[in-house]
């Protein structure tokens, strides 16, 4: 089962919820993927010992000036405009390249060779509770998160896993689409504020576009207004758990303590949440 924890709005508590859930089901040895590769932070709470790593690269074109006659075919087929041909000069812009290989395939003079261009890295290790933890890190200055997330999701540092928790980046752009794709369920974390509602709507639209069932976590419950509840009711999206607004939780998190670690009374609630999600997935499969 693949469960993605996402949110439209940033800072709503994705990582708090995802790490709490992982700890609550630690005896199932889940695989935890921190897909927020631009700012991964789940390791702060799960404290894995990293002992595996690999670089993530993209194959980018290098032009052999001896064979190239400046025909411009490569620039013509590059839909990312990562190659520009000026007379006999070919300029390659690695940070625009998506590594699709079209230029290499289309070059009539086989003048293009692909070389690996580093975008970032992956790391993995076990937490002391037995959580299999892996994360991607986008190198500073690199603009494209998706190839790192894709590589992370295809990496199997612990072999094939039954239960996978993906901690998504914020927003609803390409990196989030990648993190939701292929998931069996998406848990959307929000807060009962106008910003929370606005971005929840966008996130719900994305899950329905992708055809992935979704449920909502209302974090910081008690602040704001009723509109998130009203929206969930009208959109027929279940609210699966509520975490009250409590500054003791904020204090614990600021000390690097996870929610269920600081307040063990939440453990059974997260176990119930997990069971609830599993039941919903099974029910949906049965209907199909």
């Amino acid at each position: 089962m693949i469960l993605t924890i996402a949110s439209g709005k940033g800072g709503t508590g994705k990582t708090t919820i995802a790490t709490s859930l992982a700890l609550a089901i630690a005896d199932e040895s889940p695989l935890y993927l921190d897909c927020d590769v631009e700012a991964p932070n789940a390791h702060i709470f799960l404290k894995p010992t990293f002992d595996q790593s690999r670089a993530v690269t993209l194959p980018i074109p290098v032009v052999d000036g001896g064979r190239c006659d400046g025909c411009g075919r490569c620039a013509e087929v590059c839909q990312y405009h990562a190659i520009v041909v000026i007379g006999a000069k070919v300029l390659v812009f690695p940070e625009l390249c998506h590594g699709c290989g079209s230029c290499t395939l289309q070059c009539p003079h086989t003048a293009i060779e692909e070389v690996p261009y580093r975008l970032g890295m992956l790391e993995a290790g076990l937490s002391k509770e037995g959580i299999r933890f892996a994360r991607g890190i986008l190198d500073i200055g690199q603009p494209m998160a998706v190839p790192i997330i894709r590589a992370l999701q295809r990496w199997h540092p612990f072999g094939e896993m039954e239960t996978i928790i993906r901690d998504a980046p914020p927003g609803v752009s390409c990196p989030v689409v990648e993190t939701m794709s292929g998931a069996d369920f998406v848990l959307l974390v929000t807060e009962p504020t106008p910003f929370g509602l606005h971005d929840l709507r966008l996130a719900v639209q994305l899950t329905s576009e992708l055809g992935v069932p979704a449920g909502v976590v209302v974090n910081r419950d008690g602040i704001g207004d009723q509109r998130v509840d009203e929206y969930c009711q009208s959109a027929d999206i279940p609210i699966l758990i509520r975490i009250p607004f409590d500054d003791r939780i904020g204090r614990a998190l600021a000390c690097g303590k996870n929610l269920v670690e600081a307040f063990p009374e939440y453990l059974p609630r997260f176990r119930d949440l997990y069971t609830d999600i599993c039941d919903r997935i099974i029910e949906r499969e049965a209907v199909r």
């Binding site: 620039a75 990312y80 405009h81 990562a82 520009v84 041909v85 000026i86 812009f93 625009l96």
Partner: peptide, 29 residues
């Protein structure tokens, strides 16, 4: 263009044999 507007626009002007360009800001590409 969703990607690489700067390089695409520059290539377009070069194809049109432009010798001088006046604009506000130019990105590095």
């Amino acid at each position: 263009s969703p990607h690489g507007a700067g390089t695409q626009a520059a290539q377009f002007l070069i194809e049109n044999n432009v010798g001088v360009v006046v604009s506000g800001d130019f990105g590095p590409n």
